[in-house]
């Protein structure tokens, strides 16, 4: 069992748990301040950790951590287990539908610990553009 640890760090909630909880080439789910984050561990990739929303906005359920990981034309993706749309692990973009996007979070390995931050990893350009519009 991972250590449930919610901290305020840089004003951002984080989760820290043991690397033993990770599954190679697959996903697990962490709960951070009520937000479900899917964490994927791909030991042969650089970086090896990826974190996106666990919530599948198309299927409307918390399932992305249970999808199959792979690549489509070189882009790392997870396929939703509900309706099989692909979400980029780098950008959160849905490959089948440009108007759909999930959040991407920062995740890293420190020794035997996995650290996931709720702080969004990249500026979500599309959302911002939409907000301005």
């Amino acid at each position: 069992m991972g250590t449930a640890l919610h901290k305020q760090f840089n004003h951002e909630p984080i989760a820290v748990f043991s690397k033993a909880n990770l599954l190679e080439n697959s996903g697990v789910c962490a709960l951070i301040n009520g937000v479900q984050v899917a964490v994927f561990y791909l030991p042969t990739e650089t970086p090896p950790l990826y974190a996106i929303d666990n919530y599948d906005p198309i299927g409307g359920a918390n399932v992305l951590s249970r999808g199959i990981v792979g690549d489509i034309n070189g882009e790392l993706v997870v396929a939703s287990p509900l309706y099989k749309q692909h979400f980029s692990l780098h950008s959160g973009r849905c490959l089948e539908d440009d108007s759909v996007q999930v959040s991407v979070y920062q995740a890293r390995l420190e020794g035997d610990a996995v650290i996931v931050m709720l702080q969004k990893a990249q500026s979500q350009k599309q959302n911002i553009v939409q907000d301005i519009a």
């Binding site: 990981v69 792979g70 690549d71 489509i72 790392l76 692909h86």
Partner: peptide, 9 residues
């Protein structure tokens, strides 16, 4: 490549 949700299963 790395495989995908079609070829892996």
């Amino acid at each position: 490549g790395r495989g995908c949700d079609v070829c892996k299963p």
